[in-house]
Design a protein around this nucleic acid. Structure first.
Length: 259
DNA sequence: ATGGTCGGCTTCCGA
């Protein structure tokens, strides 16, 4: 089974590019972030016509997450459990073939200090609490998405640039490590322990041309999912295309009994 | 040292 995550930065602007990539990717499930659309305005038919099942948690103009899958998702939950009153659409979770799959759009948190960073820290606390309960289920779980966390200095082109940024502050990385230390496996680093694995390049300052990127899109695997991990990769060529998102797709393949 | 670029029910705000 192939599972991908892709921050598309606007479903309307990205539709042709996304449909093209979905055809190539052969994924079974795709976690989308920053659809920037209400559920009613999500172009559901464009996906259903190609055989995708669609689950959306939308918001007007900002944020918004979705799950696409070749088979219907079971037990879909919208919003981060324990934080359902959050008006920002940042989390959706469902089950496909025995694997619990979440699409996460963690808050950016800039500028620091300020209410946006406090919101990020609080959101991470809620995520840590929910992640602990997911681990207790002892099922294969994949929490995939834009974490807005640069985990280590090796995950950016130049850490000096990021030292005062909400994505790289010590407190941010400490909370992310709290999550990891519960027992989650970072799929990309499991398969590619060293080297640049960037997933985002800013639209500004010629970041793509200079390969001035960061790794902020992650797939965290529960131990039961990590046992199934076969491969992981980053479709970085997507960043060089016309009308590209500033993020690229990140994917894993999991070995299942019937494969 | 500054400004640069995208997307969105746009003339600012968020990233």
């Amino acid at each position: 089974m192939k599972i991908a995550t892709f921050n598309i930065n606007g479903i309307k602007a990205r539709l042709p590019r996304l449909l093209e990539w979905l055809d190539e990717s052969q994924a079974d499930a795709v976690c989308l972030q920053e659809i920037k659309s209400m559920e009613d305005n999500f172009p559901r038919l464009e996906f259903e016509d190609k055989g995708w099942h669609v689950e959306v948690l939308g918001q007007k103009g900002f944020n918004g997450v979705a799950l696409l899958s070749r088979e219907p998702m079971a037990d879909v939950m919208r919003g981060l459990p324990g934080n359902e009153d959050d008006p920002q659409a940042r989390y959706i979770e469902g089950t496909l073939k025995g694997v619990r799959i979440a699409s996460l759009y963690l808050p950016n948190g800039n500028p620091v200090p300020g209410p946006k960073y406090e919101y990020k820290m609080s959101f991470m606390d809620h995520l840590i609490t929910h992640a602990a309960s997911l681990l207790k289920s002892e099922q294969p779980v994949v929490i995939a998405g834009d974490y807005n966390v640069i985990p280590t200095p090796e995950d950016c082109h130049d850490s000096k640039t990021w030292e005062n940024d909400a994505l790289f502050l010590p407190q941010t990385r400490e909370k992310y490590r709290t999550l990891l230390y519960q027992g989650w496996t970072d799929a990309i680093r499991q398969i590619h322990p060293r080297g640049d694995c960037f997933t985002f390049w800013d639209y500004q300052r010629g970041a793509w041309q200079k390969d001035d990127g960061i790794r902020i899109d992650h797939l965290l695997l529960s131990p039961q999912a990590a046992d199934m991990l076969v491969d992981a990769g980053i479709d970085r060529l997507q960043r060089g295309k016309e009308k590209a998102s500033d993020h690229v797709p990140v994917w894993i393949t999991l070995k299942q009994d019937d494969q």
